[in-house]
Design a protein around this nucleic acid. Sequence first.
RNA 1: GCCGGGAUGGCGGAAUUGGUAGACGCACACGACUCAAAAUCGUGUAUCCUCUGGGUGUGAGGGUUCGAGUCCCUCUCCCGGCACCA
Length: 801
Amino acid sequence: MSEYDHKKIEKKWQEAWAKNEIYKTADKSSKPKYYILDMFPYPSGSGLHVGHPKGYIASDILSRFYRMSGFNVLHPMGWDAFGLPAENYALKTKTHPKVSTDKNVQVFKKQIGIIGLDYDWGREINTTDPEYYKWTQWIFLKLFEKGLAYESNEPINWCPSCKTGLANEDLENGKCERCGSDIEKKPMRQWVLKIREYADRLLNDIDQLDWPESIKELQKNWIGRSEGAQISFKIKDGQDKIDVFTTRVDTLLGATYVVLSPEHPLVAKLSAQAKNKNEIEKYVRAAANKTDAERLIENKDKTGVKIDGVLAINPSNDEAIPVFIADYVLAQYGTGAVMAVPAHDLRDFDFAKKYSIPIKKVIAPAGEKQNNEECFVEDGVLINSGQFTGLSSSEARKKITKFCGGKLTTNYKLRDWVFSRQRYWGEPIPIIHCQKCGVAPVPEKDLPVLLPEVASYEPTGTGESPLAGIDEWVNTTCPKCGGKAKRETNTMPQWAGSSWYYLRYIDPKNAKALVDEKKEKYWSPVDMYIGGAEHATRHLIYARFWHKFLKDIGVVSYDEPFKKLQHVGLINGEDGRKMGKRWGNVVNPDDIVATYGADTLRLFEMFLGPFDKSANWNTAGIIGPRRFLERVWKMSGVVTKETGEENARIESLYHATLKKVGNDIRTLNFNTAISEMMIFVNKVEEIGKISKTIYMEFLQILAPFAPHMTEELWHQLGQKKSIHLSDWPKYDEKKIVSELKKIAVQVNGRVRGEIKLEQNCDGKITQKMVLEMPEIQKWVPDGKFKKFIYIEGKIINIVVN
RNA sequence: GCCGGGAUGGCGGAAUUGGUAGACGCACACGACUCAAAAUCGUGUAUCCUCUGGGUGUGAGGGUUCGAGUCCCUCUCCCGGCACCA
């Protein structure tokens, strides 16, 4: 028998599979469909490390398993190729980003190619391809048409280093997620998408998703719905009123001051009448100059300034209370103003203590008549609240809201999506600005608006992208009046192309529509989506938003794009740190494939531990899966025709293995599936022979994990068709339970012996049998016991004392 | 601070969802083969003791149960997310 030569075998079959197009997906089929999707990569210049393919290997195993199980499988791959790194590389080297990304794509493709993944490359997509981004622009036009895309001049997050505006989702602790710079607030003209209009649907539909609980929670918190009331405080001796949002109207009688955010529109007007006008101006200016990061650092020590001479009337008891300006109140949330109840809110409590504002307790813990805590933030019973005293918090909320003429409102933490970037390497926003007609959308027939060549990729920093410098591109005619007009020079964010790409795979070459209606109905939704957890509050929210919008305009037929989602746990370096250039702990999959083979790499990555948990790379351990494969290879030398008693034992174990492997693949418990197959191989080695039928079926269940080696052995056994197009074997429950079953015998909960019973004697065990066992007699010498517990097929426990 | 997840041998991890804890793999030790080494094969490997037996043991403490890694309460530590959201 020949040696297991992984290099020869893997090359041979990768070429054969490509030549015969065995992974080509049929558009029409009588089979049920299974759409399995990987989060497509950004093709970075540094290539892959061993952590990247982990998710791809898993999706590959699933797709092979479902194909063999009789499904029409869609398993595509593509490139999310717009983005800053390519643009920054262009800045440095003057290479057009298209050139460098195309090169990177080739490297990526080669690297994942040698792992033996079964993608249907006929459906490859690239977000920077004009035929692709034509439809990204088309979706923008539709959003604009429906009033969901608008221009805004509100202050937005500005990264001074990347020289572009950013969405809320692009920040990390008040810093730019990309470069780590402190973010400034800058008023700028921006295109914004009204994702908030979808907040309720995005939130409510989370419950119907088969996603990890953690991600669902993350999204719920990100959307952050809170129900409360809007209450008006009239200004004493004035016309104005301050509207506040609160979730705790029940504490209204304990409100001892009102706070406006420094950006609140009433600040200028009210401070004009104030005695300390200059002080206020100074405070407001200082707050405006603080970055979010600075505000965050200073958040422990709250600051503010009183509008001296202005009082607000508490509508619940007509008390006149002071008005403050403080930057602990956020302008963007609620009404930008709050009522402060220091006795029942920690932030107000801190502030009130610092500025010696009265603290009035109005809630006592339920069941108590008094509140002994300095600051009690939970619901309870109202005290010191006049006619409302004695009510529970929840009753009081209704009654007080009604009494004060407040209205019930809902607020969200989710902000509208700042959608324009002042950078080059992105989809041009298909809008034309006409002096006469104002904002005019580019007509659909003129799509795509091509991204032009520029001489310099340098961001201008002025709020315009480098595109603004290309006169012949910027200057155009207005599609409405035909007069002189200019193109929008902002581009779309990185996240645009990935918000709908899963639809393009369904119908990648369609020039007439985003996706064919029939094909969409057949393939949607994605049955299994595999990718990293870092996309929880960006890609996965944006894509759900666009999908719901596309549903509303009739392009798609389901509410949610991704029915089931699974996380890939990271693979860290051998040192436990994140794998990357920074720590010099990168392991290149090419090297592992060269030394041990793709099949070994695949097996090893899946064997490392639970799929969704992060794990440390450990080159020493890779020898285990390699040895396993070599044993399987050698097993072909002990294949026999005879069916003796030994074969029956193997058959029984084989059916148990078959059952477990199938179940484990479905639930992505690849590590235990592999261990089960190892147990099987150990057993066969011990017995020393295996029938051809069982060996071949075993190769089939191993095939999704080790596609090359199993294909080779399959053909060596005389098969002509690919193992990957064969039918997944069916297990026989009857065969699994043919062996003797062992049951532990405990005395007082401690294992003292073991009893074997034949399954076919109805599992009958008599107390006499057990008590006569010598190892049991030792513990129950006189045969007396309090209780005899027998859980059928599981355990016996004799309670003596 | 809030939300979510976790803690099991030297290491990665398993445990039929309340029923023999440590499967499988790595590493290590000894043995076989070999002039030798590697590879391969075999045996062993939670820990302690007075060792053909027995005690202890799943982050700590308590509880429920005939029986707890698994359920309940309290606490410690680690990872991820959010963070003045009124």
